[in-house]
Amino acid sequence: MLEIDLIEKCKNNDRKSQMRLYDMYCDAMFCIAMRYVKSTDDAQDVMQEAFIKAFQKLNQFKAEVTFGAWLKRIVINKCLDFLKSKHQLQVSIEETNIQLADDSDWSVDEEIDVSEVKKAIETLPEKYKYVVMLYLIEGYDHEEISQILEISNSTSRTHLLRGKQKLKSLLKEKEYGKRY
């Protein structure tokens, strides 16, 4: 059965189709939730809430993007809502010294692997960490990030620029730490 047919059945409240769609996406959505909330129990709760919302709002899905991309955005928004409710996400609204970020240069030393980059991202200040994660890991652009985090486009760019600078600095420290 094609995914679009499955989605149409889900729109008609077909529970078996909803379960099949859930099974298709639950592992990937759990991994996304874990990147943000860090606790297995919390990630499962957030993921469940996201699926419930997705099934409730399924009539709003217009297939302009893939279902997975649409669902991923719901999961990320639920994660950020969860973090806000726990006061773990406090993004400063506007910064007075706005700079435009050069998003193109993300190069690091070849000896640094992806797991080291992810660990370094986790140590970034909150206002930079979530912009960097949404941009670098999730693949959102500044317009999408600004909507998700409820910040301006220029603030998103500034936080990305500063987060990238901080990230490179952290990775450089790690690199020099290895050599001495």
Rank of each mutant, 00 (worst) to 15 (best):
K86T: 07
H142E: 05
F30Q: 07
F61S: 02
Y130S: 15
Q48I: 00
P125M: 11
K129G: 09
K172M: 04
R15L: 05
I137T: 12
A120Y: 05
M19R: 08
S92T: 10
L6H: 04
T96W: 07
S154T: 01
E116W: 03
L83C: 10
C10W: 00
T66I: 04
N12Y: 09
W106I: 12
M19W: 01
Q90F: 01
E110V: 12
Q56Y: 07
S154Y: 09
E94R: 15
A120H: 05
V91C: 08
A54C: 01
E8D: 05
N97K: 15
V131I: 11
K168S: 05
K118L: 14
K164W: 02
Y180K: 09
A43I: 07
K16C: 02
D81E: 04
L170S: 15
K57M: 14
W70I: 06
N77C: 03
N12R: 15
S154E: 12
H142S: 11
A69M: 01
Q48Y: 01
L83W: 04
H87G: 15
Y130Q: 13
V108G: 04
H87M: 08
K127I: 00
H87V: 05
N97A: 14
R35I: 00
K129R: 13
R20I: 06
F61A: 06
Q56N: 11
Q48A: 08
L58P: 06
K78H: 00
N12F: 12
E3V: 06
C26K: 11
E95G: 07
Q90R: 05
K11A: 14
V117E: 01
A120F: 07
V91H: 01
Y130I: 13
D113R: 10
Y25H: 12
G68T: 13
K129T: 08
Q44E: 09
K38Y: 01
D102C: 09
I145N: 14
K178E: 13
D141R: 08
K57V: 10
M19G: 07
E49G: 13
A69F: 01
Y180P: 02
Q88C: 05
E175T: 14
E144V: 03
S17H: 02
K168E: 03
F55E: 02
M29D: 07
L58Y: 05
K127R: 10
I112T: 06
L100C: 13
K62R: 06
E150F: 06
D27W: 02
S39T: 00
E150C: 13
G139W: 05
K78S: 12
E138C: 14
L80A: 15
I121E: 07
D42M: 11
E110W: 02
Q90E: 03
Y25T: 10
A101H: 02
T96D: 12
E8A: 12
K166C: 12
V65M: 12
A43C: 10
Y36C: 03
V117G: 02
F67H: 09
L134W: 06
L161C: 09
K38L: 09
F82N: 04
Q44H: 09
Q165K: 06
L149C: 15
Q56S: 08
K84Q: 09
W106P: 05
F55N: 02
L124T: 04
K178A: 15
M19C: 04
Y36I: 02
E94D: 10
G139T: 03
Q88E: 12
Q147H: 08
N59K: 13
E8C: 04
R179L: 13
L136E: 13
S92D: 01
D103L: 02
L167S: 10
V132P: 04
M24R: 07
K172Q: 10
K9E: 07
C79G: 08
D105A: 00
R162F: 09
